[in-house]
Amino acid sequence: MGNKVIFIDVDGTLVNYENVLPDSAVEAIRMARNNGHKVYICTGRSEAEVYQNIWDIGLDGMIGGNGTYIKSGDEVVFHQVISKEESKHIVDWLHAKGLEFYLESNSGLYASEHFEEVGLQTIQEYTNRKGRDGSQVTVRTIFPEMIFGADLYRDDLNKVSFILKSYNDYLEAVKEFPNLKVGTWGGAGETALFGDVGVKSIDKGKAVDMLLEHIGASIEDTFAFGDAKIDIPMFEKCAVGVAVASGGDEIKAMADYVTDAVDDDGIYNAFKHFGLI
Rank of each mutant, 00 (worst) to 15 (best):
H89G: 00
K97D: 00
R45E: 11
K159D: 13
E100F: 04
S218D: 15
G36Y: 06
D74H: 00
C238M: 04
K84N: 01
Q52L: 10
G119W: 06
I41D: 08
V76N: 12
I147F: 00
G205P: 03
L152K: 01
I41F: 11
K204E: 14
Q80A: 05
H95M: 01
N179W: 03
D249M: 07
L21Y: 09
S166V: 00
T43A: 09
L164G: 04
L157S: 10
M234H: 11
V137K: 07
Q121S: 15
M1E: 10
S201D: 15
E27V: 07
Y268T: 09
A188P: 04
G195Q: 03
A32T: 11
I70Q: 06
H37L: 10
G44A: 05
K97G: 03
K252H: 06
A255I: 05
L152I: 10
E113L: 10
S72C: 11
A96Y: 04
V160S: 01
M31K: 15
S46G: 15
G58D: 09
E250P: 03
R33F: 11
L152V: 11
E75M: 06
F148H: 02
T222W: 09
K200F: 11
I54F: 10
L276T: 05
H273F: 13
L212S: 10
H79P: 00
E27G: 01
I82T: 02
G65V: 06
I142C: 04
I215H: 13
I8T: 10
N168H: 09
M31W: 04
